[in-house]
Design a protein around this nucleic acid. Structure first.
Lengths: 351, 351
DNA sequence: CTGAAAGCGCTTACAG
DNA sequence: CTGAAAGCGCTTACAG
C-alpha cells in the first residue's frame, strides 16, 4: 500500500493520461449543425437529408466520437445496464448461465453488470442495493436465495427476473425448471436398469431445488414399488467436495447401494472420485447420475449420465424476460423441459 | 416479438413501476440543509457537527437515499466501473480469473463490467469501444489477443492492464507468468519418471502462450539429451474437444509415446478421454500433465498432475494494478511463480 | 426540419 | 462551516 518515493516524484508523469473526451458539441460544430441535431441523427429520431447525415457521420468518424454513457443515462433515466446476481462467477453452473445472459443482452445494446452473492443472504442483498444505486434498468437474480418478500419489495424499484421460483408480481417475473420431473427421470432410468438400492446425495441447507429433486426421487421410487430408505440419503454441498464426503459416509455406513443419484453434476464428480478411491468402478460397481448436464460432463471419465437443463438457454431467457419487463410487456417465456442424457456412468445392475 | 392485444390493453398497468428516485435535494430539504452540504457529508469531504451529521444520516435513512451513479459519474468524470475483457465468461479458466477480479474490486467500491471477446479480434475490439463509451475508469484485458499496437492506442484514452504480455507503456501495465519455465517443470517431471517419448499437444493459432510452452518443452528435452521429434507435436484448440482429436491423431499416427504434456488442463481432460476410448489407462499406459491447475483438476479421474498458475490470484493482481494505474501510481506487481502439482495422472514409465 | 433552452442528479470551486 | 451557481454531456419538449 505504501508508495515508494521514486514513484511519488514522477507521479505527475506516470499519472493517468488526460481523458480528453470528445463531446456532442465538438461534433456538431465540425458538422456545422447544433448538438440537438447530431443527437437526433445518432438516435435516429429524425429524417434528414443525406448530405447532412453524411456530414455528421464524417464528423463523428473524424473525432471518433462515442456518446458518454453516463450523460446519456442521466438524461434518459436509463443506463442500458442490467444487474446480474449469481452466487459465484467461477462455477461451471453460473458460467453457463451468465454466458447466455451476456449473449442475449449484447445484441440489444445492453451490458450486464455481474456480482456474486457468495451463497450469503447479506451479500446478495448488498448486490441488489448496489445495482439500484447504479441505476441498472433491470436485475436478473440467477439461482439466488434472497427471500421472496425482499424480492417483491425491490421489484417496486426496478424490474426483476428470478430463476428457480414460482413468484410473480408487478415488475417481477420468474422462470422455473421442473426439478421434480427431472429427478424422477433420473431415478426411473436407474430403476429400468434394474437398480433397487439407489442412494441420493442432496445439496446443503434445504435449498428448494434440492427439496424438489428429493421429491422426484421419492416419487419415482414409489412408482416402482421401492420403499424409501432414509439411510440412502446423504448430504453434500452442491460442490465436488461435498460429493466426495457424502459418498465416503455412504460407503462407510455399510448400507448397500448399486447406484447414486446426485443433486447436481459437481456432486456427481465428487461421488465418482470417492468411489474410485475406494476401488469401486463406475458404472460396473456403482452407477452414477447427475443433474444439470454441465458441458464438462461429456468429458468426464466415464462421461456422465445427467439430467439436462439448458442453463445457457435459461440465461438467455432471463435476459429476454427482463428486456420485455423493461419495455412494459409481460414476458411469456417457459423454460425448455428437462431431459435425461444417458452416457456411460450408468449400466445394468449387477447380478 | 409480437405483443398480444390483451397485453396491449393492460400495458399501462403492467409497465415498469414508476421509478421515483430520491434525490439529494429531497434529503437536503428533510435535513434542513443544502444539497451541497449533504453531498459533502456523504463524501466525507467536510467536518460537521454531530448533530448535523445525525440529521442528515436520518434523512438518508428515512428516504433510503442512494446517490445516482450516472449523475455522480458525470459530475466526477468517473464511474467506479472497470471493464473486463475475457474470451468467454463460461470457462473454468476465465471464471477463476474473473472471480479474483471481482473480489478485489468490490472491496474498493468498484464494479466490474464483463464482456466476452469470443476469441475474435473484432469482438475484443468492440468490447474496448463499448467500455470506453461507457466511460469505465479502466480496462483489464484478461488473456486477450488484441494486438499490442491497438492496446497501446487505447491506453491513451483509458488505463489498461493486460495479462500474458511483456508490453509496457504510459497508462498500460502487463502481468505475465513464466510459461516457458512452467512447461519445463512439467517435462522435467516426466523425464525424471523415465519418460523419453513425450508428446506435446499445443493450442490453436500460435497463441504466444502456446509458443512459450512449446519452447519450455523443447528446452527441457534438450536438457535431458532427448532429441526433438516433430511427430510428437499435435495441435488442439485449448478446449477438451481439441485434446480428444489431437490425441486420436497421435495414436493413429502410430508414433510411440508414453506421456503427453498438454498446453492446458482442458486439453488434458480431452486427452484422457481419448486415451480411455482407445482402452489406454492413465497413468499406467500413458502419463498426462496439464497446465493451469484448474480447480476441477483435483477431482478428475485420475486427479490431474498440472502446472499451477493461480489464475484467481492473477485476477486479483490485475484488479490491484488497474486501481493503482487509475490512482496515478506505477504498479509494482509480479505474479506468483508457477509450480508443478503432482497428482495421479503421471507415473514411472513402463519397463 | 432545426435550434435554444431546460433538465437529468450530482460535485465543487467560489463566495460569504 | 455552508449555500448559490455553474458545470459534467446528453436528450427532448418547445418554439420557430
Amino acid at each position: 500500500m505504501s508508495v515508494k518515493s521514486g514513484s511519488v516524484r514522477t507521479r505527475g508523469k506516470s499519472g493517468p493520461p488526460p481523458r480528453k473526451s470528445v463531446t456532442l458539441r465538438m461534433v456538431a460544430r465540425e458538422a456545422g449543425v447544433s448538438a440537438s441535431t447530431v443527437s437526433r441523427i445518432i438516435n435516429g429520431t429524425v429524417n434528414v437529408s443525406d448530405g447532412l447525415k453524411n456530414a455528421v457521420d464524417a464528423a463523428i468518424a473524424k473525432y471518433d466520437f462515442r456518446p458518454n454513457a453516463a450523460a446519456r443515462g442521466l438524461a434518459l433515466g436509463k443506463t442500458l445496464t442490467i444487474g446480474v446476481v449469481a452466487q459465484a462467477i467461477d462455477s461451471p453452473f453460473y458460467g453457463e448461465g451468465l454466458r447466455g445472459i451476456e449473449a442475449c443482452l449484447r445484441h440489444r445494446g445492453y451490458a450486464p453488470l455481474f456480482m456474486s452473492g457468495n451463497w450469503a443472504d447479506e451479500d446478495e442483498d448488498r448486490c441488489m442495493r448496489e445495482f439500484i444505486g447504479r441505476g441498472v434498468d433491470g436485475i436478473i437474480v440467477f439461482a439466488g436465495r434472497l427471500g421472496d418478500t425482499k424480492l417483491r419489495s425491490y421489484a417496486k424499484e426496478v424490474p426483476i427476473v428470478v430463476t428457480g421460483r414460482k413468484l410473480r408480481a408487478q415488475g417481477l417475473f420468474s422462470l422455473q425448471i421442473d426439478d421434480q420431473h427431472g429427478a424422477a427421470l433420473a431415478v426411473r432410468h436407474l430403476v429400468e436398469l434394474g437398480h433397487r438400492r439407489i442412494a441420493f446425495i442432496t445439496g446443503s441447507d434445504n435449498h428448494p431445488d434440492a427439496l424438489e429433486r428429493l421429491e422426484g426421487y421419492k416419487a419415482a421410487l414409489q412408482e416402482a414399488g421401492i420403499g424409501f430408505d432414509p439411510r440412502l440419503i446423504a448430504t453434500g454441498d452442491w460442490h465436488e467436495d461435498g460429493g466426495v464426503r457424502a459418498t465416503q459416509l455412504l460407503i462407510e455406513s455399510g448400507v448397500k447401494f448399486t447406484a447414486i443419484f446426485c443433486v447436481n453434476d459437481q456432486t456427481a464428480y465428487g461421488a465418482c472420485l470417492a468411489l474410485f478411491r475406494k476401488g469401486l468402478s463406475v458404472p460396473r460397481d456403482v452407477s452414477v447420475v447427475g443433474f444439470d448436464d454441465l458441458p464438462s460432463s461429456t468429458y468426464r471419465l466415464p462421461p456422465l449420465t445427467s439430467v439436462r437443463q439448458s442453463i445457457g438457454e435459461l440465461g438467455e431467457q432471463s435476459a429476454q424476460a427482463i428486456l420485455q419487463l423493461i419495455a412494459g410487456q409481460r414476458p411469456k417465456i417457459t423454460p425448455r423441459p428437462v431431459e435425461l442424457v444417458v452416457r456411460e456412468s450408468t449400466c445394468a445392475a449387477q447380478g
